[in-house]
Every structure is written in structure tokens, then in C-alpha cells.
Simulated scan of single mutants.
Amino acid sequence: MIVMSIAGVDPSAGAGVFADLKTFQAIGVYGTGIVTALTAQNPYKFFSTLPVSEDYITEQIDAVMDSYDVEFIKTGMLYSPEIIKLVSKKIKEYDLKAVVDPVMVATSGGDLTQQDIANALNKYLLPNSILTTPNIAEAEKLTGLKINSKEDAIKSCEKIVCDSLITGGHLDGINTISINGEILIEKQELIETDNLHGTGCNLSSAIVAYLAKDNDLKTSILKSLDYVYEGIKNGNYGTLIAKI
């Protein structure tokens, strides 16, 4: 079972490709990693981003696909509309099943991507994906709707163009799931902790890993929510930042 992460690099290893590879390994699948951008950050501060060229991202993906049979992938920080269009093209070319973590802003305060990223995600990537996993702020950017309640989250799920999981770290632990038009609410107790850096990355990569192990989408989501919750509770992520 071989999966892929297409995302940025966090040198503190709490988020991005490095975190995804650790999650893949923990769940028992082999992970490959395509780097879209370098970042300078740590769990408490964001410094800068340096994007990788589209040609080199293409070469990385082609190199992996030349040797490995990959079906399920996740995307994280894609940085620009051009990179989003490129990744969407590759998803179609290789018939990949993509879980999209629509990374836009680091909780430490840094803008990770260009401003028009939400429009590009909606236009190019989400229509070719099986799931997206935005937090509240990201869901608001994707839909243009404010989310202050469970009802608001449900409306946002219904507007997103693919199946979705709006995570509840900023909504009293209410995770809102939409699969084939069916809404499921999965509420989790909030935990007082600083161990939150990269939880969104770990969630989406866990879903991909469970899908690769022949779980259906609903089961993969629920197992991944439990996996991330236990990681936060037990401090298994090291010194981790961004609330899901």
C-alpha cells in the first residue's frame, strides 16, 4: 500500500510532508512525498515560504508514479493557482483519489499561499477530489459563508463541491461531515493543550492511509478523527501548532 503527500516542507517536522510521512508510517502504509514549497517556521512563528517550480513538482510526481502504484494521495500547501492547476492535471492523468487539506494560513500567523488560492481550489482541485478537510477559517474562505454554529457548518458543507469534513477545533469540537449529500455530526471533547501544530496535516494523511487499507470514506474519516484526538491527548506529535 503506497500513498502520496503533495505539500510543503515544515523544517520543525510538525506539519507538511514530514508530518504526513510519519502519519503514513504510524498507520502502516508506505508514504511518498512531493515537495511544493519550502517554509521557514516552527511551532510558534512563521517566517517565510519559498515555492518549488511547477516543472520540478511535475518531475517529482512523474518520478514517483514511474516506479510506484499509487491510488490515494493527499494535498497540503500548494502555494499558487498555477501549482493547484498542475496538481489537478496530474490527478486526472494518473487517476488518483485525492484528499485535499486546503492549507492557506498557519495558525502561527503566516500566510502560506497566495490570496486567490480559494478560488483556484474551488475551480480546479476540489471537483477532481474525493474529500476536503478544511478548518472553520478555510471553509469560510472556500464558501464565502461565516460559520458560527453547527447549522452554518452544515450549510458550508452543502456548498463545497466535493465531499467534505469541516473540522471543529474552533466550533466547540463539532466536526461536520458530508458524504454523498448525507450529513454526519461527530462531536469531540476539546483538549486544553499546545500540542496542536500540524493536526490538520495529520488528519488528512491519516484518512488517506486508512483509505489505502481498504476502509470506506466514512470509516476512514472516523478512524482518523480518533487517531488525531489520541495524538493530541497523548502528545504523540512532539511539539506540534495549527488547530484543525
Rank of each mutant, 00 (worst) to 15 (best):
N128G: 01
I179R: 07
G144T: 13
G31T: 08
D111Y: 01
I241H: 12
K155D: 07
K92D: 13
V3N: 11
Q25T: 01
E82R: 11
K155S: 09
S53H: 02
A242C: 05
V103P: 08
D62I: 06
S149G: 08
I191P: 14
V9Y: 08
K233L: 12
Y79L: 05
V70L: 05
L121F: 15
F18H: 14
L171P: 05
G76F: 08
S12C: 11
Y237W: 15
T58M: 12
L217M: 06
T133M: 01
G235N: 10
G110T: 12
E93Q: 10
V52P: 11
I183V: 08
I6A: 11
N122P: 07
V70N: 13
V17F: 14
S156G: 15
E71W: 14
K97A: 10
A26D: 14
T23H: 12
D152A: 10
P81C: 03
L131V: 10
S178W: 04
I83D: 02
K90A: 09
P102Q: 08
P134W: 00
I34C: 09
T133C: 02
L165E: 10
V208D: 10
I179D: 13
L165Y: 14
I147K: 06
K155V: 02
Y30T: 12
G28I: 02
P11L: 07
Q115W: 01
S53M: 03
K218V: 11
V35K: 11
T133G: 09
N135W: 08
N202C: 04
K243L: 09
P102H: 04
V100I: 12
A137C: 06
I160R: 11
G109F: 05
L78I: 03
I183C: 07
K97Q: 11
D216E: 04
A139M: 04
L50P: 00
E182H: 11
T143D: 15
L21P: 08
K146I: 01
D66C: 09
I130E: 05
S205P: 05
L190V: 03
S156L: 05
L121T: 10
N202F: 00
P134V: 03
D95P: 00
F47Y: 15
S129M: 03
Y94Q: 00
K97G: 03
K92G: 10
D95R: 11
A139P: 01
I84Y: 15
D116P: 02
D226A: 14
T23L: 13
Q60A: 00
N180W: 07
I232Q: 07
T23M: 02
K218S: 12
P51G: 01
L145Q: 11
F18L: 14
T219A: 14
A98H: 04
V100F: 08
G231L: 14
G200A: 04
G169V: 08
L112P: 03
V3T: 13
T32G: 00
